[in-house]
Amino acid sequence: MNQSANQGFPLLKVEHLTMRFGGLTAIDDLSFSAAQTDITAIIGPNGAGKTTVFNCLTGFYKPSEGMISLTHPDRTRFLLERMDDFRICSKARVARTFQNIRLFAGMTLLENLLVAQHNQLMKASGFTIGALLGLVSYQPHEKQAIELARHWLDKIGLVERADDHAADLPYGDQRRLEIARAMCTDPLMLCLDEPAAGLNPKESDQLNRLLLDIRREEQIAILLIEHDMSVVMEISDHVIVIDYGRKISSGTASYVRNDKKVIAAYLGVENEEGQGAEVKP
């Protein structure tokens, strides 16, 4: 649609973000931005602070310092560091998934996707009282919600299993269901915490196509943390590398891959005393 108008438009701007846990500085003066309709990857070794960045963005942690601003296409600006976690999703339209999958295991796939549309449906049901007393017609809204759920189930190829428990799905399907659930909240930015973790090459390929599809059709920004280099290199427009809470490199995938600092962070550097290369596994 108006892709050209919004291309490169900085949706998310993180400035001087710092997060301290007691004496430990998990994120140290990190600044970056993510453009709308871009896929931005945050990579880094274990314990570099990637998930902490996500938790700050989505309100699960309150950052010690710094500003996180999200500007909608209509120029409304939200300061995420001041908002409650659930408002970041409902008002600022940021959705996320979790490193360890957090589905509603005992509920069906369809129910999982309907819970994600809670706020719209709640309004449609007259905050329960309206629907209980029969003052509002809730059914059409529910039908709409089911249609949206069906659309996403179709996208992840799980329509057939709509009425099964989420816990009964294989691991890869659970991952994709979690993404579908996040998408049902109608986000402008989707934060994915290691979406390819534990997926086999085929599933990881499916995931790539799903993410590219989402970007193309929904015109939203995707921010992802990833270890799996095949995902990062293939689909991300922009890669940010962090180590010990600091940004050490950023740019296109091919650029960071050849950056000496990045290679050093991942593989270790030659010891200063010159005792040979120390290679981390």
């Binding site: 409902s90 957090r102 295991a105 509920m107 819970v115 659930r181």
Partner: peptide
């Protein structure tokens, strides 16, 4: 019911 299953996930869904 979602709350019973996973509170954190509920919050992440707004």
């Amino acid at each position: 019911e979602a709350l019973r299953e996973d509170e954190t996930a509920c919050r992440s869904l707004g």
